Structure formats: C-alpha cells, structure tokens
Simulated assay, not measured.
Amino acid sequence: MRILLGCLASATVLCLLTAGCGTVARNETSPSPQNNPNVRVQQTEPRAKPITDSKSVANHLESLAKGIPGVRNAHCVIAGNVAVVGIDVDSKLERSRIGTIKYSVAEAFRKDPYGVNAVVTADMDLSERLKEIGADIRNGRPLQGFSEEMADIIGRIVPQMPRDTIPKDEHTERSSTNQAPKINKNM
C-alpha cells in the first residue's frame, strides 16, 4: 500500500511539473518584421564605398583626420579597399590623450563611406613609414617603396637573441681559423 501511495504521489508531481512547463500564450503587441512585409529597416551605418581613385581618397581621409583637434598631420596609404592612416600628434601628450585623439579620428572615419574600413594608428614610427610609402607611390615606385618599408618594419620586429651575438675577439679568432663557435648546450 505504501508503495502504491508513493507511486501515485510521484505520478501526481510529474503531471503537475509537465503541465507547468507548457507554452505561455504569446504577447502579440509588437509584430515581428519577419511576419510583416510592410516593416522596413533603414541602414543607419554608412556602407563602405569601393575605392576607385586611391589618390583622392587618401587626400580626403588625410584632410578629415587633420580636422580633428590634436592631429598635427596625417598620412594615408590605400591598399586595395582598405586605408591605413597614420596620425601625427604631439609626442609630449599622455598616452590616454593620444588614445582619445585616435578614437576621435576613427569616429570621424566611421561616418565617412571611404573611412568605414580604415585603420588608424598614432604610432610615430608607423606614421613616418606610411609617409615614406606614400612618397614612394607618388614618385612612381609603389612596389619598391612598399617592399623596402616592409623590410624595415620586419627588421624591427625580428628579435635579436643575446646568444646569437658573437664578441669581437671570438669573431676574429673564428674567421682566422674557420671554426664554429662553441655553444653551451647546458643553458
């Protein structure tokens, strides 16, 4: 009898739980755009325009960046449909202020159809390299200028390992005897 009452109580609890998990009636106060073909959404963000005249777009983005307070100069290089813009700011500014200026430039670009996909940097070295690439492009050396600058950039990125350096006395001894330096394998 006790087992029968236990099974009956379990079945009742199971029925109540199952009934409680049913679907709730939908609130149809706001129609779904999927169900209503008359509802249309306007594009609020500007769409990126394809860059056909890279020189004029570069000049446009440079002038747009220069219009932001705190930007002394700007350099733009177009690669395909992406613009890379380096901005020159006062080197004595704090990092947070430089970040604010860079954000303001990016915000101005976001509203421009050519600047939507632009990359903005405030790094002084990269900005100078972009300036040199732009000058090479204007001088009719786009590939050579770009490859030279990329080699310089990669040369700065590649680390110099201390164990790869050879002191002068070992270097002169090795070159005269044509022996490889002894490497301590216990490091």
Rank of each mutant, 00 (worst) to 15 (best):
E170D: 11
S32N: 14
I166V: 15
T18Y: 08
G140E: 09
E62R: 14
N178W: 15
V120W: 02
A58P: 02
C21E: 07
T100K: 12
D53S: 02
N184G: 07
K66P: 04
E94D: 13
N178H: 14
R138G: 05
T165D: 10
G155E: 05
L130M: 09
G80N: 13
K168E: 05
S176Q: 10
I157L: 13
Q43E: 11
T29Y: 06
L16M: 14
T172N: 12
R141M: 06
C76E: 03
L126W: 03
H75Y: 12
E107N: 11
A83C: 08
N139A: 14
R72I: 15
I68L: 10
V24R: 11
S176R: 14
K102D: 09
D90F: 13
D88M: 08
L16A: 09
V82W: 01
N139V: 02
T121N: 03
S127K: 05
E173R: 11
D164F: 15
A122K: 04
V71K: 01
V116W: 04
S96W: 10
R72H: 09
L61Y: 01
I183A: 12
G99V: 08
I101L: 03
S63H: 01
I137V: 15
T52C: 01
L61W: 00
T100E: 15
I87S: 02
N38D: 11
D169M: 07
V84R: 07
A74Q: 07
G6M: 15
G134V: 02
M124V: 09
I98L: 06
P113H: 12
C21L: 14
V105I: 05
D152L: 12
V158E: 06
E128K: 05
R47C: 01
A65C: 10
N27K: 01
M161W: 13
Q42K: 01
P181N: 10
M161S: 14
D125H: 04
E149D: 12
A74H: 04
G22P: 01
